[in-house]
Nucleic acid binder design. Structure first.
Lengths: 221, 221
DNA sequence: CGAAACTAACTCACTGGTTCGTACATTACA
DNA sequence: TGTAATGTACGAACCAGTGAGTTAGTTTCG
């Protein structure tokens, strides 16, 4: 009873199909993130959808292609979010600090994506490599960091001659680890890094870390 | 023909069993690290061993118990290695720098362990929690860091009032990420963080990062 | 216009291979 | 002789993937 067959105009079938595909992708993302590639069950995904397993094969072709489609969607969304970042108008120190905190927030908000990245690394990125969409998805963040680094050198705020990829790596590492490894870290050290009482402190810390490094304070005396 | 039955003395059977168990654990670690928990195959493990699948069930009880045994062995070895670290005789700045570099080397040398940690986090540490051995395996590293931090405050080298767990987390994050995420990072940014031409620079960087942070250079001007 | 041909979306029932785990017989040994 | 260790074969569930046909819109064309 969701729609009256007689009233359905031209493009509705197509729109239904798109909606179904989107629903499958969403459910599949959850299933893959929760159980890993091998642990995910196509039947389970089908059951949590308004469609059937047959349709998953009809639309995506197979489990692996579905998984790749999930990765493509997740990565694409992340890149889209990154493009909205604008810190160019800030002074170098504030720009880096803000970028670090935005990265922190971003990781905090996209737990499933973090897990997919972790899963993909266990498989040594074999699926990402099969995707043409993701093949050369360099990121604008690197350009941004480069520009901030140059400005900082120019102004004298930054002393360390840092590499943009290294800086991006460092910030990502901190933010990624906090979310991805929260469970084993919590089990071993009795601290939930994602708990509210630690969140704000760690968020500030990642910015200070980046700034301290770029100011050159770590070099041997 | 590996041993003469008639010449075998008392404890040899036991020693054979221990050796077989150890062999199973080693092969299983590899299999689990490569394919994840669900992706690992008990038959595959058995085939790569001088034993049969029957013996795996005889010794360990099941796939999950075998996996937990692998985790216990891996974590125990890591902790044993950590206990050999001695930087207490160094000045605070050098102690932190050395500790960071040792952590770096350690992650660099134990790729399978890194993968197991990643896998365990995907499963939200459900298996670690089932293990009594690993339940409260706090680490001596925290005490070490605490002492270094105190000494640094005392001597005036460190200005930031840092938390030992946070510092450990930061260093681990950097080292862990470089190894664990090398594949997706490489695919997206075209740089292999584990390649020789980047290794030394990043190794130095993690020490400088920690020192710069503790010296308080990241605080707002 | 209206029927027939066409096509996308969808259902149902099924299969072949895989995979964890075990029953049972057998051997080595104290 | 009794107990621990081991080999062989098998079963039952699971699970990715498919064959074959149906429904309902869309296009073509007399």
């Amino acid at each position: 009873m969701t729609s009256q067959p007689l009233a359905r105009a031209g493009g509705e079938r197509q729109r239904d199909a798109d909606r179904t595909k989107a629903e499958i992708l969403q459910v599949a993302q959850r299933e893959f993130a929760r159980h890993g590639y091998a642990g995910a069950r196509v039947d389970e995904i089908a059951e949590r959808t308004r469609t059937t397993k047959r349709m998953i094969y009809y639309y995506f072709g197979g489990k692996e292609q579905l998984y790749i489609a999930v990765l493509e969607k997740a990565y694409t969304e992340v890149r889209a979010a990154e493009r909205t970042v604008d810190v160019a108008h800030l002074a170098p120190v504030e720009a880096i600090r803000t970028l670090a905190e935005l990265t922190f927030d971003h990781h905090d908000a996209h737990r499933d994506f973090i897990k997919l990245v972790g899963i993909e690394n266990i498989h040594e990125a074999e699926h990402i490599r099969k995707s043409e969409v993701l093949a050369n998805l360099g990121t604008p963040v690197l350009d941004l960091i480069s520009r901030i680094l140059d400005a900082g050198q120019e102004s004298g705020d930054f002393v360390t001659e840092a590499d943009a990829i290294d800086v991006h790596m460092m910030i990502s590492a901190f933010c990624f680890f906090r979310v991805a490894n929260q469970h084993t870290f919590g089990a071993l050290f009795g601290r939930d890094m994602t708990a509210p009482e630690h969140r704000a402190r760690l968020r500030t810390m990642v910015g200070e870390l980046a700034v301290a490094y770029l100011r050159g304070a770590g070099a041997p005396a």
